[in-house]
């Protein structure tokens, strides 16, 4: 498949607010992103020409924001709308190996949906983890250093070397990943190569306290994938550092490369689709 044939559904509902930059990232790499409102999948769109089916797309992207205000639990309402209307389509989409990604609110939605961590089934009946309130009790908008620790299963990070550290910012109030049944779950996550990004300090050390770990997440986990590697969620925002100039310190190291640290995430998944389909 050619990059220019790859159709990316950038899913939105009220309160999603990072859809434009997410769309731009795919478009600038030559793919064919499209904003898809959940009502279009639900077939509740005012004109039937706007009805959409998940199977028309090659990648499903859940952007950041505050879907429905996040007044209940972050992501809970969007997740229940997806599950009740296109839950089966989504399971099929994932089982066909098509990539699903979520950043920030997108990750929260995926956890609420039960597609992450998703070790017992493609989509569990109830959430197997939660993104809990940050330890600081605050919304945290700040840079974060992420070490890529995935050993090769994740299709969203193939363009990033293992143990490479990248700067990708966070902006959330609920990013502290807590797994159900922690005694076994964390071991399982690491053993099955489902951990993708971990927060670290400037030395690359995982013993990094706040603010390096901005939310208190155990084992500094910032992003995970399912055991087949196609479903991937992370709290930080790679779409915000698509360009070098969006980094907090680009003017301190004036280098010619205009690529930001987040671009590789989008390149990786497009690469994967090109090769696989």
């Amino acid at each position: 498949m050619k990059v220019s044939d790859i159709r990316v559904a950038v899913l939105r509902m009220e309160g999603i607010n990072c859809e434009q930059e997410t769309y731009d990232a795919f478009e600038r790499l030559g793919a064919r992103p499209e904003f898809v409102h959940i009502k279009q999948l639900e077939k509740r769109w005012p004109d039937s020409g706007g009805y959409r089916d998940l199977e028309e797309y090659d990648i499903l992207m859940l952007p950041g924001g505050f879907s429905a205000g996040d007044y209940i639990r972050a992501g809970a309402i969007f997740a229940s709308r997806i599950k009740s209307s296109v839950g089966k389509d989504l399971v099929r989409f994932i089982e066909e190996g098509k990539p699903v990604g979520g950043f920030c609110n997108g990750f929260q939605i995926m956890v609420e949906l039960g597609v992450l961590p998703g070790y017992s089934s493609t989509m569990s009946d109830r959430p197997e983890a939660v993104l809990h309130a940050n330890d600081s009790g605050n919304f945290e908008c700040r840079p974060a250093l992420l070490k890529m620790v995935n050993r090769g299963s994740c299709v969203w990070t193939s363009r990033i070397e293992k143990d490479e550290v990248r700067l990708i910012p966070v902006a959330h109030a609920e990013g502290n990943l807590i797994l159900d049944d922690p005694d076994r779950a964390y071991a399982r996550l690491f053993d099955s190569d489902m951990v993708v990004f971990r927060y670290c300090d400037t030395e690359g050390d995982f013993e990094a306290p706040y603010p390096y770990n901005p939310n208190g997440s155990r084992f500094n986990i910032a992003g995970i994938c399912n055991d087949t590697g196609n479903v991937f969620g992370m709290m930080p925002h790679p779409e915000r550092v698509f360009d070098r100039i969006a980094h907090p310190d680009w003017y301190r190291k004036r280098i010619s490369r205009d690529e930001g640290d987040g671009r590789a995430v989008f390149e990786s998944v497009l690469d994967h689709v090109v090769k696989r389909f």
Binding site: Q20, D24, G64, C141, P169, A171, H237, R240, V241, D243
Partner: peptide, 14 residues
């Protein structure tokens, strides 16, 4: 204060 405000959404704050 400003860390509690999202000052980077839209990805255009250079």
């Amino acid at each position: 204060v400003f860390r509690t405000y999202d000052h980077e959404v839209r990805a255009r704050t250079v």
